[in-house]
Design a protein around this nucleic acid. Sequence first.
DNA 1: TTTAGCACTCCATCTCTCTGAGTGCTAAAT
DNA 2: ATTTAGCACTCAGAGAGATGGAGTGCTAAA
Lengths: 360, 360
Amino acid sequence: MELTERQKKVLRAIVDNYIQTAEPVGSKVLAAMPGMDCSSATIRNEMAELTQKGLLEQPHTSAGRIPSPAGYRLYVDELMQDYRLSVDETQSLNQAMELKMQEVDKVISQVSKMVSKMTNLPAVAMTAAANAPTVQRFDILMASSNSFILVVMTNSETIKNKLIKLPVNCTEQDLKLLSAVLNASLTDLPAEAITPEVLNKVTRSAGPAASMVPVIVDFTTHVLQEQQRSEVYVTGQMKLLGQPEYRDVDKAQEVLSSLDSDTFSNLPATLLDNAKTQILVGPENIARELKDTSVVMTRFDIGDGMQGLIGVVGPTRMDYAQVTARLSYFAENLGRMFSRPEPQLPPSAHDKDQEPGDES
Amino acid sequence: MELTERQKKVLRAIVDNYIQTAEPVGSKVLAAMPGMDCSSATIRNEMAELTQKGLLEQPHTSAGRIPSPAGYRLYVDELMQDYRLSVDETQSLNQAMELKMQEVDKVISQVSKMVSKMTNLPAVAMTAAANAPTVQRFDILMASSNSFILVVMTNSETIKNKLIKLPVNCTEQDLKLLSAVLNASLTDLPAEAITPEVLNKVTRSAGPAASMVPVIVDFTTHVLQEQQRSEVYVTGQMKLLGQPEYRDVDKAQEVLSSLDSDTFSNLPATLLDNAKTQILVGPENIARELKDTSVVMTRFDIGDGMQGLIGVVGPTRMDYAQVTARLSYFAENLGRMFSRPEPQLPPSAHDKDQEPGDES
DNA sequence: TTTAGCACTCCATCTCTCTGAGTGCTAAAT
DNA sequence: ATTTAGCACTCAGAGAGATGGAGTGCTAAA
């Protein structure tokens, strides 16, 4: 079952070529390639053998060969040449990444957009909380006599807030008491632990501002749930249509419709412990609908135990080397950005116009 | 140029039928319709006249008729029958709208998703700040010895925050001073008015915590700019492919690629002062690329002078009546929800699972 | 072991024909 | 004056061959 050097060369050439052209590759064009020092007949023999080994396929008798899923697998595992990012590319990647990341969840959607743009394929991005989210700290500010600002910071250092408009007659002192009670009773509790009993206890000891407690608790559980739920952002769906294998609208729709939270929610388990970029070829895939596509995913770390996954979805015939390289570079630098403390920009920092809703 | 009653009836029937079938309508099927008390020959005569008046078109000599843009215009202005939402529909709309709206900008994207889902067409949603955004209030909380929470509330009552990690040696008192200075100098200023001079002045009087000022100001201008910029969220692009006229991928792509901020940024001026739902048929459209599509847009109000636009994009042959009805209902109720003070839900409120990244 | 040569296969493309839906016009009917 | 029946005409779209060419597998010579 071992392949000769020449067979490897042929297989690699076929995959490379097919990735570029999306057309079955014939023996003639291969023979004409530089570095192939044999005739088309020889190539044909090798091809026949590779086909027999299940690494190539023939759409029909008188067509060239295309790689089979197994062929792709071998290619990405052993044959693929590393793609070197050009200087231009790293520059434009760096430029794209120069985003002002003020809110974590906005970052995820931005990231997804950028990945899609730079790979020219639909992109998927999601967060995955490593540990159960809890609240680390509550603050309550008085905005006016009947409106208050609730500030909640979670253990992953995400901060959420809410304006509470409620006619409550209370002083700054009362608010201090309330937040003290909240901080004492509700911090470090996962969403499930916030039971009616706890709520009752809080309400009883909350003093004059007690009427705010329900709203606060409701908001808190909402925030915690939101943190826990791994949101999946899909961007650039239309990019898939650019690929010749998805000119058929129905096919594209089938694939894209399976790109939702459900599909990816069982993925992280296998992927999160492996830091390297993963390539799932066709049938190896997570969802049945994706059996004719490939998914390339990689992990990146955000501060404080939060992790994210970014990846792209495309035809099995995608440029794995290039996509992998770009994705890894991206993930790496993204992680670095997050671990960096405060960017410390001068306030006159130029403000790149970041088209918000652009998903072209 | 006036139309007879029967001509109107014929035109309406043609548009209605074409909206359903996307096929040219022939005289025979029209004659067979209930309520048409004349033969196909008579209909043919009327059709010829309507064609001559520019309200109908013929794809080729031996095909039925389809409405021209002018025909659609007349239809939506005068002929269209109001679409009555069924009980089922209002229920599912209400259910869809029962979202926990914790953050304004998340709402917009949610809204866009919902509209897309319920019209089965690509949806566009954007906010439009009525007046120049300013900061109304600053707060700074100490999270730990070297991290601080900055809370900024704008005049539209949006609250943004940021965790500042910076080794600053200062007391609660120093923070009080800093926030007092910020509140005194930077509130009610639009982004442009925050000049280096102002910044300098603030830094000088900020006391021991002065080193935080650049970060704070940077964040503030960022927030203000973000508020001002009208973000355009486009969702459900793939829905367009469900429409027979966009089975051709290239056409769909052309349309969808023009759905970005730029296209819609010059729209509000004409639309924002008119509260009713607007229908832009084909060539009347904002962008040249949209000349074969129609856009239905409507306005909704969020509290405190903020406004939003939601709309859908689809083939000229879309079900205007239905889309308009759903959109209006949606906009109306959305506005109502925002003007309501605090929902005051019990904390045990059931939590509808709101699939986040689903754009199928 | 490699290569040239050749017969064979079969997809893609083109042309041609044919069908049927739909029209416009004319002449009779109301 | 309007409506209707009838008829000749048009033309897109489907289906049936016919054609060309890319690519293969196999055999026999190098």
